[in-house]
Design a binder for these strands. Structure first.
Lengths: 204, 204
DNA sequence: GTCTATATCATGATAGAC
DNA sequence: GTCTATCATGATATAGAC
């Protein structure tokens, strides 16, 4: 996610990422992006024809980053529980390193859903593969019976929501104590894994 | 959440709610609010001095609505599990009736956190009461040991996130089949209750 | 490629008639 | 209270010199 090189185009991309992430498409100002990049507004339009095009460039980069290859993990040959653990670890790790991603995506998701969908399709996220794997684990009595979509929703929700609502979590749960907040996020991976396993694994 | 009466002020509030919810503070246009209310822009400024003030009026109404009295449920004298069930039912019921709330709050949460915090404090949400109740249930061996903040985060996440990310859930999980999507939301309450209970209740 | 200066337009806000 | 007309600002975008 570090775009930084030192060409002008890279400086613009890095600056635009920061401003768009902080303010969103509507809140961002071309002037602010230019200032942050250390250039002037005209150059932004020279490299990217319009604000819209610049935003799309940034948005696309971030989406690629935000959807890790969970389908790949899902199709591996390991036990189902092990796959869940890997997915949770992969997500929490990504979110700790780039905590701005959920807030950014959720903001733009409500503004212009179609823009996101094109990219989701383009990067080949295939939910059916995941549901099939869940169903298989149920048929094998590895886990209890439940609708695959709900299981997926539960896991993803517990991973992403505390990051998407970061300002609220910080204030309500930790009175803005950032050290405690960061510790909380690090703990999330183990907490979620244990919680899910206790909920769905069939005790023998 | 229905503001509708028929005075001009009420028409403005209703129109402003719709537009602010759909577009957010930055995306909303005074012209559009005026059109939706069937009046002209000047009247908006006559009733509410500025866009900012109008937004605050709407935001405050919605926040009051979004934080049901979970502290009240928490302090009742019922078994802990029964309280969790009531909280989940209350939340899902609210979200099904007003599915726009999470998206709206999350958008503004990232734009101006302090505005939300003032209101959260004002309406007296006290997380410590909830954590104490969770701790008590653990001390009584009703549920397994885990950090109260994580348990709360897990439950709230599973309730809210699928609504906050509605366009994504609709597209990725249901290919925009709205009937199936609505059924999914109705099922959420029972699914979450069972999931949480299986994860934390100590089997005797 | 990079800059200054400017065109063009949309928006929030106000003045003033009725 | 409600309207029309207008202002003031600030934004995206472009023209043109270097």
């Amino acid at each position: 996610m570090e775009i930084k090189k030192d060409s002008t185009e890279d400086k613009i991309l890095e600056a635009a990422k920061n401003v768009f992430v902080a303010k969103g498409m509507e809140g961002a100002r071309m002037q602010e992006i230019a200032d942050e990049a250390g250039i002037n507004k005209a150059l932004l339009h020279y490299y990217f024809r319009s604000k819209e095009k610049l935003f799309e460039a940034i948005f696309s980069k971030i989406i690629q980053f935000a959807f890790p290859e969970i389908t790949r993990i899902a199709q591996s040959n390991e036990p189902f529980i092990s796959k869940i653990e890997q997915v949770v670890d992969a997500y929490i790790d990504l979110l700790i390193k780039h905590p701005f991603i959920p807030g950014f995506i959720m903001k733009e998701l409500n503004r212009d859903p179609s823009g996101l969908f094109k990219l989701v399709v383009k990067f080949g996220l295939n939910p059916q593969v995941i549901f099939d794997q869940i169903q298989l684990a149920m048929d094998r009595d590895e886990i209890i019976q439940m609708q695959p979509r709900h299981l997926a929703a539960n896991i993803i929700s517990m991973c992403i929501f505390p990051f998407a609502a970061r300002p609220l979590v910080s204030f309500v749960l930790f009175k803005d104590d950032q050290v405690a907040l960061n510790a909380f996020y690090v703990e999330r991976a183990d907490v979620i894994k244990k919680f899910v396993i206790d909920a769905i694994v069939i005790k023998k």
